[in-house]
Amino acid sequence: MRSEPVVEPVVEPAVEPVVEPVVPEPGSPPAPPPLAVRDLRIAFGGGVDRVEAVRGVSFDVAAGEVLALVGESGAGKSLTARALLGMAPRGAHVDGAVLLSGSPVTAAHRGRRIALVPQDSLSALSPVHPVGEQLAAAVRSVRKVSRREARARSLAALDRVGVPAARARAHAHEFSGGMRQRAVIAMALVNEPAVVVADEPTTALDPDVQDQVLAVLAAQREATGAALVLVTHDLAVVRQHADRIAVMYAGRIVEHGPARPVLDRPRAPYTAGLLASLPDPAAARKTRLPALPGHPPAVTDIPPGCAFAPRCPHTTDRCHVEVPALRALDDGRTLACHLEHPA
């Protein structure tokens, strides 16, 4: 007796309503940005053992804009990035506000309105499921669509980042590092989030592959209009891809403003020190690179006053006792430094 073939029931894709653009009334307040961070603080422990790893970070990111968070290891960049998605480490005490278009971020927003491009693509992808299947599962986790529609969306997302449809059946270990990073970009963007957080997305990739991955990320951001927070220590990447830059040190933003002015004429001594330590292609080959003295402080041992004071060449007595407030300058940037006319 012949058995009838099993036919997967057809589930009609959810019809997404067409939303007409809202034209604000004259004099009405502007729409909130896709991402707004207000006085973000992340601490560990309690009582006398309480330590703050992120201390009062605030910024906005507009639609289609790239904000780069830069600084040395331990500055609090990745911890800030994770907190934007509600993914702070277990045991962390998070205060302040992270707002998506004016609404507090929740776990339900991850993958739908805000998404992460992680640093380690191999750990981010399942080793036992084909890459295309993982993207389809990401689609179905936030959209009521059939498996067929989810597969179609996943293949389209992979195609947009340059991964051939035939590779959708491959597993993560069968991809090169660059192809894996393209796959996690596709996964982050498959549901067209309004905000994308890319945490060191080119770590451990060679320069050519880095350029390819960043070009893919830029093209997808331009196509979708997503706001992008780019976490990196590579100032060359920042110069090429960022609209604005926030320089972090010891859990605080010490300089924040349009990328080109900050990079061409840094006002914070820490920013100036970072830029001075970059290789100069025009310099003689045996020229010794200047380096910032000392090391960033551990979160358990942040000095009083300005945290950068022990390493700063322009320090005064005030710097060792008073934490500098982040103040607005007349050129559109903000700065945390006691110097009256820094840099």
Results as ranks from 00 to 15, higher is better:
L292P: 10
R148W: 09
V213D: 00
D243C: 04
V128S: 09
V54G: 00
R318L: 14
E65A: 06
L289I: 04
V163F: 07
D234W: 05
S121W: 04
V262I: 14
A291E: 08
V321D: 12
L189A: 12
A259P: 01
S103R: 15
L335P: 00
R244S: 02
L339G: 11
R288H: 09
D211I: 09
C319I: 03
E4Y: 07
V254L: 01
D264C: 08
T300N: 10
D49V: 13
R244W: 02
D39E: 13
L99Y: 10
C337Q: 03
Q210V: 04
L339W: 06
L292W: 09
G74W: 03
V323M: 05
T224M: 12
R50Y: 09
L69D: 02
V196C: 05
E12V: 08
A43W: 01
G257Y: 02
R140M: 14
R260E: 15
V321I: 14
L125V: 07
S3H: 13
R153Q: 15
H256M: 09
R167V: 13
R180P: 05
V184C: 06
R265A: 14
A276P: 04
D264T: 07
G294C: 12
D234S: 07
H173L: 14
S3G: 12
A53Y: 05
G86H: 02
S123T: 13
E192D: 15
V23F: 04
V6E: 13
E340Q: 14
V48H: 15
T202V: 11
A172R: 12
D211W: 11
P21W: 13
E192S: 15
A223F: 05
L158Q: 03
G47R: 03
G162P: 05
A172E: 05
R239H: 07
P34K: 03
V10K: 09
D208W: 10
R288T: 15
S146H: 01
L230V: 02
L230R: 00
G64V: 08
E8Q: 12
V323R: 13
P5Y: 08
L326R: 04
A53N: 08
K77E: 11
S103Q: 15
L335S: 02
E4K: 10
S121F: 05
V117L: 07
D159L: 10
P281G: 11
G162N: 06
A36M: 09
A336M: 05
T287W: 07
A137Q: 11
V22A: 14
F59N: 00
D60L: 07
V37H: 00
D317V: 14
I253R: 01
T232L: 06
V209R: 01
H320P: 13
L274A: 05
P21V: 11
V231Q: 05
H109L: 11
A215E: 15
H233R: 10
L40A: 02
D211L: 14
S123E: 14
A242V: 03
H338T: 05
A272P: 09
E72A: 11
H314Y: 15
V15N: 02
A291N: 08
D120L: 09
H171G: 02
L263D: 00
V213M: 06
V321P: 11
P201G: 01
H241C: 01
A157M: 12
V195E: 03
P89V: 01
P342L: 09
